[in-house]
Amino acid sequence: MKRKIEYLLLVLLLILSACAMPPKTGRTKITFVLDWLPNTNHTGLYIAQTKGYFEKQGLDVEIIQPANSTAEQLVASGRADFGISYQEQLTYARTTKNALPIKAVAAILQHNTSGFASLKTSGIQTPKDFEGKRYGAYGTPSEYAMLAGIMADYGADISKTEVIDVASADFFTLVPKQIDYAWIFEGWAGIEAKLRGVELNYFSLRELDDTYDYYTPIIISNDAFLAENPDIAKKMLAAITDGYNDAVADPDEAATIFLANVPEANEELVRESQKFMSTKYIDDAPYFGYMEYDRFQKPADWLFEQGLLESPLDVSEAFTNEFLPNKG
């Protein structure tokens, strides 16, 4: 009964928000591309859409999923105005020979909430135990380098672990028959494991080495778009900030709004994930979206030292807080 009431209230909210919106014909069209399937990294966007925060800023925002291109490629080419990416992806994109003109304009999470996970029964107690095990990899160069570096810190040799490319296959369908451990996101797969009653050994990247405490995910935009449309960018970030601030204040309402927009999602997983994620959007930062220079510089230096970047990252061009409503 409580859930039905919540949905009825949400419908009422949509009606009231629509009444307060500027005429659609007078709004600026914006395309926002996600990085993957909708999940609780994206909740603030759906709140901003549902509560009319975009519309109140005079924006007509379409949220899309990437098809045959990545979010970085779509934003760089101008086919999307904003998108969701990851700091390591942006670092690669800006340092290749044919660099992509993209910039981080907000951090969705203040700290890296990902890490390596295995079943409790796997016998993996520390990264030293990765030797002789099968690792399910996404397949990115930085992933392999991080795994190699962490194993070396524990006196282990990455050549003694079998790396299997599993792309984005579901962790729970792979272990233990096909792989022994993988890189997961605590706020999604970690929560799902608890709901399934599956006990994990989990090694947080940021706790293993603070070099890996980079911003992930982030919101990106195109350099030229930002230079030509600073006021629109500020309006966009103001609406997004309102959405994520609401998610921090009321995780249950946030989950209800997310589920109304993504009804195919697992309700129990979304609600439990949202409780976790709502504590991570701002965390110990002064305000939503805030990013620090050193948190970009340290991982980029490490990647360059590992020979994974074609050139050093110019951090001053890689991110900005200037479009955030609470910029300091």
Rank of each mutant, 00 (worst) to 15 (best):
K275W: 08
N261A: 05
A18Y: 11
G58T: 04
V248C: 05
F185M: 04
I5T: 14
T256Y: 03
D252Y: 03
G136T: 03
S159C: 06
E192Y: 00
A71G: 13
T50Q: 08
L309T: 14
K24T: 13
K24D: 15
R134F: 04
L324A: 00
A99T: 08
N266T: 06
P101N: 01
M277I: 07
I184E: 12
A107F: 03
I220H: 02
A137N: 12
A238C: 07
F203N: 00
F323E: 13
L13Y: 03
K234Y: 03
L200M: 14
R295Y: 01
D129M: 05
E322L: 06
V198Q: 00
Q297G: 04
N112K: 07
N201H: 12
D314A: 15
A238M: 10
N326D: 15
S77R: 13
E228C: 05
A255V: 01
T126W: 01
M21W: 13
A48G: 10
W188C: 00
S168G: 02
A300P: 08
V198H: 00
A145L: 10
F319R: 13
K327M: 02
Y244L: 10
E264F: 08
I124E: 08
P38N: 08
L109E: 11
E6T: 11
Q178I: 05
E186V: 00
Q274Y: 04
A148N: 15
I15Y: 06
P312D: 12
P141M: 01
K56H: 13
E253K: 14
D301F: 01
V270W: 04
L9K: 10
I257E: 11
Y214W: 15
A260C: 01
F116Y: 15
P127L: 02
K128I: 04
L100Q: 15
K4C: 11
K24A: 15
G115V: 01
V75N: 03
F185G: 13
D170P: 04
V163F: 03
I108N: 00
I232P: 12
P38Q: 07
F319A: 12
V33T: 15
